[in-house]
Design a protein around this nucleic acid. Structure first.
Lengths: 358, 358
DNA sequence: TTGTACGCGTTATCAA
DNA sequence: TTGATAACGCGTACAA
């Protein structure tokens, strides 16, 4: 009987298998094990019997190589930067790909040409940014972009000291570099546009979970409507962020008999769902209800009618964030830097109401 | 004189800066440098002067910590698996997030609970999968999912021997595990559906760059139309994959006076653009032109009219790929395994033509 | 207030 | 055909 059984034991306290342990168990040297596991046994002329034994033991023990050790040993490792995109499980994922795309685009540009890098995606439960290990002490990455934090996460950030450069997206915390837009401003503009389209019974559609960005838009919108002296806007709350969520929330709202002639959707995806609910209720856009979204998703201009919205600042935001992070890493930027991205309205047909000829 | 780390020195032969070199240059010990760089100088009671010197030297030299060494040293490192998602720059990025999402979802499920992992995103120029270093020899990751390969990449794969488990998405190569659907079948079904909707002047819309999946759909479609004895379908080729590309290609096609009463779009995103071009040309969907897409993007059912398409197998594909990879890593799966994901039509209004009452 | 030495898991070199 | 050992860069216990 072989004592490999130990290793397959689900007891999580046991150390992961290493080449050394494997070698000891088999009574051979680490060099032998290593060469077999790396297909170098031919050139090293290991006996077939040993090869078999090693392979079997490795498989039985569930051996997996330690990548950090391999990289360290390989030497090339020291030239690799590990850059992390940190986001919450609850956030819409396509936004992550905006950062990844920006990383890969920029890393090939001139000043960063000879940086070798790995992009890692780390995720945390919304509100529990403190959980993922190795972030603070820099044992996971050389630098990180952190997005989609909630208030608790921001508090954690404000209280933490990092040993690696960090760039925040969508919020501003003292001593951190950050990139964001002015969400309150966006909300205010949305209100102005709807009011300017002669809408007076306004409503705002947003997801249950609010970040600093979406919360800011909501706040700016409500505030502006009030200050205009108009009726306080109705609030339509969806479960999640996608089209279906928007559809359901809007449908429920209309079924309850609420009236609306101007709708601000905190995200374009929700507006897509709202479109359908409105149409199903026989309401015409923009004649009966003017609609404006946020984000300028690619589909916005292909909706029927084309959706008014605000520029897709996400792309710029992520790109600027990557630029900041690389700036910090290369020493070109030395102090915390805040970047503000303007958000501009893109007016299409969905808000052309009461203003023929626009 | 100062030397600049990784970046500023164009001479790529110089080694990156380490704390050892830093310490030597300053005439202090590595422990001192390390403690300063990790904010432990207070507890270690390093003199302010030394702290200042170390910080300045580190900044001047462009010192960046070696993450592999840190992870190795931290011990926790040995429990981390590095899992890579490998895709091409030219592929649509949201697909990447499908894999990442699947990883993060599954890694928290029961059998994998105590696996700690890092998700790395590696990208290559389409057709040059051989370029990114460290993939083959397993010095970058413990396992990888590879998607969006072109023919050249597939040839490279067929000829390579890997030291880590690999799962391919969308193609099938001997000795590899893979997950895919049957694209030819999808194309054939699309043809049947359009022909069944009494369309006879068919066209197919696809991007210039074809993968095994998109090429398969195209082939299956054309073949089926021919075998039915109908006129050979017109081919509409777009530059890229997004809505605008679809719009432009379709618009050009219609401007040249081509007639069409049934359109198969290889991807839903292209169909979104085609919708607008068709409407702008005064063509009604589905009365004048039946349309069917592929992918069941979330917006498909919110288009006007709702778009017929094929199930969004991407999600299942990526999830199954992750499952396979984890299976290989944990030793539960020992031999190359091929998984086929069925692709089912989702019939909505855009193909309800000539069949009132459907 | 600072320095020395060890070990993390690998692979390559040299020796046997 | 195989084994012992150095080295990769880092952080820290222990020593001074």
């Amino acid at each position: 009987m072989r004592f490999w059984g130990i290793l397959a034991m689900p007891d999580s306290s046991d150390k992961p298998m290493t080449i050394t342990a494997l070698a000891k168990g088999l009574g051979v040297s680490v060099a032998t094990v290593s060469s077999v596991l790396n297909h170098r046994h031919v050139q090293r002329r290991i006996s077939p019997e040993t090869v078999r034994k090693v392979r079997q033991a490795a498989a039985a023990a569930g051996y997996l190589p330690n990548i950090s050790a391999r990289r360290l040993r390989s030497g090339a490792a020291s030239r690799y930067l590990v850059l992390a995109v940190v986001t919450s499980y609850q956030a819409p994922l396509p936004l992550v790909s905006a950062s990844i795309a920006a990383f890969h685009r920029l890393i090939h540009e001139e000043p960063y040409r000879d940086i070798q890098s790995t992009i890692a995606v780390e995720m945390f439960e919304a509100g529990r940014l403190a959980d993922p290990p190795g972030l603070l002490d820099g044992s996971r990455c050389n630098g990180a972009i952190i997005a989609n934090t909630l208030a608790q996460d921001d508090a954690f950030l404000a209280a933490s000291q990092w040993s690696i450069p960090i760039v925040l997206i969508g919020r501003d915390i003292p001593n951190y570099s950050s990139v964001r837009d002015l969400p309150e401003k966006t909300g205010q503009q949305a209100a102005e546009i709807l009011l300017g389209a002669d809408s007076r019974r306004l409503a705002v559609l947003h997801a249950k979970m609010l970040t600093q960005a979406t919360g800011g838009r909501l706040g700016g919108f409500v505030e502006k409507v009030k200050s205009f002296g108009a009726e306080e806007p109705a609030t339509i709350i969806s479960e999640g962020f996608d089209e279906r969520d928007g559809y359901r929330a809007m449908q429920r709202f209309l079924e309850q008999g609420y009236q609306v002639d101007g709708l601000y959707s905190i995200m374009d995806s929700l507006a897509v769902g709202a479109y359908r609910a409105l149409k199903e209720h026989g309401l015409r856009i923009p004649e009966d209800v003017a609609v404006i979204g946020t984000g300028d998703y690619p589909i916005a201009s292909y909706l029927d009618p084309p959706l008014s919205t605000f520029t897709r600042s996400q792309y710029n935001i992520h790109e600027e964030a990557v630029r900041l992070l690389l700036g910090h890493l290369t020493g070109k930027i030395k102090t915390p830097t805040q970047v503000l991205i303007p958000v501009l309205p893109v007016l299409r047909q969905s808000t052309q109401r009461g203003r023929p000829g626009w």
